[in-house]
């Protein structure tokens, strides 16, 4: 059509080409296009974002490998074979072996499993606690908000990793204590997001309408305020996963993570430092997996933000 029109300078239209269709009020009300909810709309936008979709696929692949891969090879993360230490990658050991002759492939994916567990668990706890705390602050406002906000501000201004390090020095590091330590101040950011959203939504007309029809606070909070604040909440949760994964890797790098022989990506990289000149595979594979995991979560989070809140896109 376009190509054909380009050759003609002006469309030659005659009066016969037009017809009266009248003023049909019934048809005006018919919805021509399939109606999309806000979520379908966001999904549509997300699907067109190639970077975000690639990131999502990588995330899923990493998750599947972290679950399945350790069962595919005949080794476990702590089975050592002192006859074949520091072997380069081969068909027997896809990622090579470490200084105890342990299979780096299994250990890398076990480490990825721990990273994902810590990341997801920390994000979930942040979500629950942050939404409750932030919800109360935003919904009730006034003095309650003031006091709770001051409290979270003081907690937040204490350097995060210092607190985590202190806690792990005192309590024996294990998966549980790491997650606990990471969430002790991790929820604050979420609570501020929720507070801001709810404060802003609270003054909107639809809340006034619902209030005037006699809705109680439970209905207001769970039916109106939280569902509308869902976008920023989801984005914050997604972006808090990679930061928890980073913190876990950082801590195990310092020797404050899960204890040997359990593998963690951070401790694997730390262990590999003594001999990386000769055995680079011991560092490269865990480094690659942790970087890819964090990268894909970050890119997907950015994509989600663009999809859920197109206004923010720059």
């Amino acid at each position: 059509m376009l190509a054909a029109n380009n050759t003609v300078k002006q469309a030659e239209l005659k009066p016969e080409d037009f017809q009266t269709i009248g003023n049909n009020h019934k048809e005006a009300e018919v919805i021509q296009r399939e109606s999309l909810s806000a979520w379908q709309d966001a999904w549509e936008r997300l699907r067109q974002n190639k970077m975000a979709m690639t990131a999502l696929i990588i995330m899923i692949l990493i998750a599947i490998l972290a679950i399945v891969a350790p069962h595919l090879v005949p080794y476990t993360y702590d089975s050592n074979d002192l006859m074949s230490t520091n072997k380069p990658p081969s068909w027997d050991h896809l990622f090579g072996t470490d200084d105890f002759g342990r299979d780096v492939f299994v250990r890398t994916w076990m480490g990825a499993r721990i990273s994902l567990i810590v990341g997801l668990a920390a994000a979930c706890i942040d979500l629950i606690f942050g939404v409750i705390y932030g919800g109360i602050m935003g919904f009730f406002g006034g003095r309650i908000d003031n006091i709770m906000n001051k409290f979270s501000e003081i907690l937040y201004s204490i350097p995060y990793l210092l607190v985590v390090i202190m806690l792990l020095v005192v309590f024996e590091p294990s998966l549980g204590t790491i997650i606990l330590a990471l969430t002790i101040t991790g929820w604050i950011n979420m609570s501020w997001i929720v507070r801001g959203e709810i404060m802003q939504l609270k003054s909107r007309e639809f809340i006034l309408a619902s209030r005037s029809m006699g809705a109680d606070w439970k209905r207001l909070l769970f039916k109106h305020l939280l569902p509308n604040a869902m976008g920023p909440i989801i984005v914050t949760v997604t972006l808090s996963v990679p930061s928890a994964i980073f913190s876990e890797a950082f801590l195990s790098f310092l020797g404050l993570g899960v204890q040997a022989p359990v593998a963690s990506l951070g401790s694997m990289i730390n262990d590999s430092l003594t001999g990386w000149m000769y055995y680079p595979w011991r560092m490269i594979f865990p480094a690659l997996v942790i970087s890819l995991t964090m990268l894909s979560f970050n890119i997907f989070g950015d994509g989600l933000r663009d999809a859920l809140d197109p206004k923010l896109k720059k």
Partner: peptide, 11 residues
């Protein structure tokens, strides 16, 4: 933003 500093350092 995504690659941890100790990974950058090691590489």
């Amino acid at each position: 933003i995504a690659v941890p500093s100790f990974v950058v350092a090691s590489l």
